[in-house]
Amino acid sequence: MKAIICDSYGPPSNLRYGDLPTPSIRPDEILVEVHACSVNFPDTLIIQGLYQVKPELPFSPGSDIAGTIKALGADVKGFKVGDEVVGFAPYGGFAEEAVLPAKACFPKPPGMDMTQAAAFLLAYGTSYHALNDRAKLKEGETLLVLGAAGGVGLTAVELGKKMGAKVIAAASTDEKLAICREYGADEVINYTKEDLKTRTKELTGGKGVDVIYDPVGGDYTEAALRAIAWEGRYLVVGFAAGNIPKIPLNLPLLKGCQIIGVFWGAFAQKSPGKNIQATMELIQWFFEGSLKPRIHATYPLPLAAKALEALLNREVKGKVVITMK
């Protein structure tokens, strides 16, 4: 099968388009003919050897998969060959065929095309787990989303509004913030032009924000934390800025706040029942028209490295998807 192959850890330019053998499956796994696979920030880390998961070389990156079942493990129930599915795997999605754990595989909603389906599960799953399970966001609270025009950030804006919060979107350009407005943001902050802490305080009447959703890290983390409300919740989602910030621990003390880690992939594996319930709710909201994945661009499989570079260069507004067909 054709695949994007990582032979040695490094930047996207190290990847090659070539052949890998069709992967074998265990009894609790499903072999999928991949139609589309979205690009996520962990993909840029795993190819550099910087992610929690370090596959044996060579391997193919890619986690968020939509496609058609080709084969079933002996213990898999509830699916059949030919079913259209969407699912999540640690890696292997930038290929014509990939393996999905059965517990991380779902029927593809018939009203959702393959590109949308590939862009849906990880981004919305992460944000819903963060806001609902970890922060327990309440109606009427304020939510600040950093990197708000990115793949997960935009879903946090959408879901925050769906859950009844006042949403403040922070991003690096006015063009990105205009998209955040389209997706429901009540207020916006361009943190390349405005002081993040000062403007957040102004927009909340000096109170600060109840919940901060941070998939970026880097230089804006401490400024955002200084603008959190008493008993606020700071969600650590990722480090798209490229460096992990060091937090002065007197700030959580003075703010009476919580710093909360968000790792949706581990949650999906450790609590599959809860994850299935949440995924079904998200799919229902999609059908109701409440959620609309934003596809920034699609790339054919041979150009997957270009998609990863676009993500690293912060050119992406929404999701980028690799298509096989």
Rank of each mutant, 00 (worst) to 15 (best):
323 T>E: 13
233 R>Y: 09
273 G>H: 08
81 V>P: 08
253 L>A: 10
97 E>V: 07
7 D>H: 15
235 L>P: 11
189 I>K: 05
137 L>I: 02
184 G>N: 06
189 I>A: 09
35 H>N: 11
190 N>W: 05
314 R>L: 12
34 V>H: 10
288 E>R: 14
316 V>L: 07
80 K>V: 10
144 L>H: 08
29 E>V: 11
115 T>C: 01
46 I>G: 06
276 I>Y: 00
232 G>R: 00
178 A>N: 15
271 S>M: 12
64 D>H: 07
303 L>S: 11
186 D>W: 00
170 A>R: 01
138 K>Y: 06
83 D>I: 03
182 E>V: 00
86 V>W: 03
11 P>D: 08
237 V>P: 05
116 Q>S: 12
167 V>D: 03
132 N>V: 14
221 T>K: 01
161 K>G: 12
290 S>F: 12
69 I>Q: 07
109 P>V: 06
308 L>Y: 12
232 G>H: 11
131 L>I: 10
279 T>A: 08
270 K>T: 15
210 D>G: 02
301 L>Y: 04
39 V>R: 09
84 E>S: 11
151 G>P: 13
53 V>D: 03
141 E>R: 09
315 E>A: 06
118 A>P: 09
106 F>K: 02
244 I>K: 05
121 L>S: 12
66 A>C: 13
147 G>F: 07
93 G>L: 06
100 L>F: 13
251 L>N: 07
150 G>H: 13
83 D>H: 04
56 E>C: 02
197 K>M: 03
135 A>R: 12
27 P>N: 13
288 E>V: 08
303 L>E: 15
4 I>R: 00
31 L>K: 12
313 N>R: 14
50 L>Y: 02
128 Y>V: 06
154 L>I: 15
157 V>P: 06
236 V>L: 11
159 L>N: 08
316 V>P: 01
57 L>S: 05
8 S>D: 13
175 E>R: 14
50 L>N: 14
262 V>L: 07
201 K>W: 07
218 G>A: 06
98 A>N: 04
299 Y>H: 15
157 V>C: 04
202 E>Q: 05
116 Q>G: 15
271 S>I: 04
285 W>T: 11
106 F>C: 00
